Amino acid sequence: MLNPNVVVKNIVNQTNTDAILALIARALLAYIFIVAGWGKLTAYSATASYMESMGVPSAMLPLTILVELGGGLALLLGFQARFAAFGLGIFSLITAFLFHGSAEDGINFMKNFAMAGGLFFLMLHGAGKFSLDHIIEK
């Protein structure tokens, strides 16, 4: 009998396939943080005002940009990816409650939780073969 899980496992467990999928997963996770961090940097005043309106001090904005942009780039490049994934996962959970806790914003709340799940999975399994972490660890 054909077992789809075994078929997928056999495909994914091939070294190059695993490495390529890890790179794609990192890029997909990194994308939202890089874009969001860049957006905050280029619309600094508007973002600071929004943060203040949500009860978050605008003095936190530089740290937020560093976490999003720096963490996103670290994920993309696979540099200290476990640390970056853990930090971004915690960041995603915190921002879910601070900015997306209302009933009207439930989809973004769930999105942040889903991203945190993917990031924690990346933290457990590492960046993969096509990463700076792999090069450094060799």
Rank of each mutant, 00 (worst) to 15 (best):
N5L: 15
F91W: 14
E52G: 10
E137F: 01
G55W: 11
I135V: 15
A19C: 04
N13P: 01
F33G: 07
A46L: 13
A30I: 05
M1F: 11
L41C: 11
F99A: 10
S45M: 09
L132E: 03
F121S: 08
V35A: 12
V7C: 09
G71M: 04
L23A: 15
I136S: 00
L29G: 03
L76I: 05
I11D: 11
M110C: 06
T95L: 04
V56R: 07
A27E: 10
K138S: 12
L77A: 08
K138W: 03
G70R: 05
M54P: 02
L98K: 08
W38M: 12
I135Q: 11
T42S: 13
S131T: 01
G89T: 01
F33Q: 00
L29D: 09
M110F: 09
N5P: 00
F130A: 04
W38A: 14
G128P: 05
L41P: 02
F109G: 08
G89I: 00
A27T: 15
K129V: 00
L69C: 06
Q80P: 04
M115V: 06
T15A: 15
L69E: 03
L76Y: 03
R26N: 02
F33A: 01
T42K: 11
G101D: 10
K9Y: 12
D105L: 13
L77G: 06
L124E: 05
I34N: 08
Q14W: 02
M110P: 02
L73I: 13
